[in-house]
Design a protein around this nucleic acid. Structure first.
Length: 370
RNA sequence: GUGGGUAUAGCUCAGUUGGUUAGAGUGCCAGGUUGUGGCCCUGGAGGUCGUGGGUUCGAGCCCCACUACUCACCCCA
């Protein structure tokens, strides 16, 4: 609540909060950053060589919202956080890292929106300006926003009430009211992005649903997955570590929604390769061959080769069918003849070529082909 | 928070004005070949028709409630 901000929608309406059996208040994580910051502080990581770069993968996130396409009550995020770096170059690096990930996955046509929402130096005067503006339109605001007026007028900017939206359209924007430090930082960020030929749009209406951001905020948006277009969002949070009880250490990061990422991949027709389950499958005929294959499988596994053998007593044809369905690259056939010669017929399932390989050489042969 | 839609086989779905034993495709298993996968052919297994109640001689179909899922507005990942 301290980090995200107790006037945000997330804290006010969207957190899953309940008591555990010891009467302690428990809340399911509604976002990823605060927990990373907590860990950074708890483990005294600010005394390590700075900057500290961290990531989390597939962290479950819970928000009590009405679900729809691309918006779930439980979703998963991949996130990156960097602590201890104040220059705009790291802002650019964070954005570049997110974009590079999409590019590597083959996703093109995403839009980058950036904005600056200032710092504790320039925000009070902007807040006063907002307050003045919204007070003049007070009668046109919803009751919640009238409450926000004095507590946190910035939050009015992302109210969902239609009548508020009309008022917001003409409100002053932060990016025009930055102090010189924030303005310089924002210009520097744009300079780094230009230098890397990263195209972006300055969108003064990005506010983000979290209060801890300072200076840079950004969103990466796809227009292929419907209304829930934001697939990645993030920004700078220079006061958060301090707020949570640590040193005065700046931070910046992003969160990326795994489920939305998968939707984008699907809509772009990008196939995620099926994982290969094993490297070689033993097809056998007869009990002695089967026993031999079983022990060969065990030996290969000890050498890091993923080997499998039939456990259903199936016909040779059925064993081949199974191997085919599993997409295994090699089948080792062992029947009467092979037992006599002490070798297996190794079939390349892609080309259909077969080669006789002595049992003792299977390991090195398969390792070489893998 | 507001307003729609859907629920039948593992999956995707059909099921006529309420009428006999609820179907298809796909997937799965087996056979067609007792030493060889992909294609083809044949057969088989698999269903409390979301749950509970009501109307009716009779309900997958009509009515009510509940639950789950889903879509949209707004915002967010």
């Amino acid at each position: 609540m301290r980090g995200v901000g107790d006037t945000t929608d997330i804290v006010q309406k969207e957190m899953y909060t309940f008591e555990d059996k010891g009467g302690r208040s428990i809340t399911l994580k509604p976002e990823g950053t605060a927990g990373v910051v907590r860990s950074f502080v708890e483990n005294g990581m600010s005394s390590q060589a700075q900057p500290t770069k961290m990531y989390y993968l597939s962290a479950p996130i819970f928000r009590y919202e009405n679900p729809q396409s691309g918006r779930l009550r439980e979703h998963h995020q991949f996130g990156v956080e960097v602590f201890g770096a104040k220059d705009a170059s790291i802002d650019a690096e964070i954005i570049m890292t997110a974009l590079a990930l999409f590019e590597k996955l083959g996703i093109n046509g995403l839009k980058l929106n950036i904005n600056s929402i200032g710092c504790p130096n320039c925000r009070p005067s902007y807040n006063a300006m907002l307050n003045k503006y919204f007070t003049s339109k007070k009668d046109d605001l919803c009751p919640t926003c009238r409450e926000r007026l004095d507590k946190n007028p910035l939050r009015i900017l992302d109210c969902k009430e239609e009548k508020c939206r009309l008022v917001i359209a003409d409100a002053p924007v932060m990016v025009n009211e930055l102090c010189s430090e924030c303005a310089d930082h924002f210009e520097a960020l744009k300079g780094y992005l230009d230098e890397m030929d990263i195209s972006y749009e300055v969108n003064p209406f990005i506010v983000r649903g979290l209060d801890y951001y300072t200076k840079t905020v950004f969103e990466i948006i796809s227009d292929t997955i419907g209304a829930q277009g934001t697939v990645c969002g993030g920004g700078r949070y220079d006061k958060l570590v301090r707020e949570v009880g640590g040193q005065d250490v700046p931070g910046i990061g992003f969160g990326l929604g795994i489920e939305r990422l998968l939707m984008v991949l699907e809509n772009e027709g990008i196939k995620i390769p099926e994982p290969r389950l094993f490297d070689v499958y033993f097809v056998t005929m007869g009990d002695t061959a089967r026993k031999k294959a079983f022990s060969l499988v065990a030996g290969l596994r000890e050498n890091g080769i993923r080997a499998e053998v039939d456990h259903c007593g199936r016909s040779m044809k059925a064993q081949f069918k199974y191997a085919d369905k599993c997409g295994v690259p090699y089948v080792a056939v062992i029947a009467e003849d092979e037992m006599k010669n002490g070798e297996a017929k190794l079939r390349n399932m892609n080309t259909g070529d077969e080669k006789s390989i002595p049992f003792s050489e299977l390991k090195s042969y398969i390792n070489q082909e893998k």
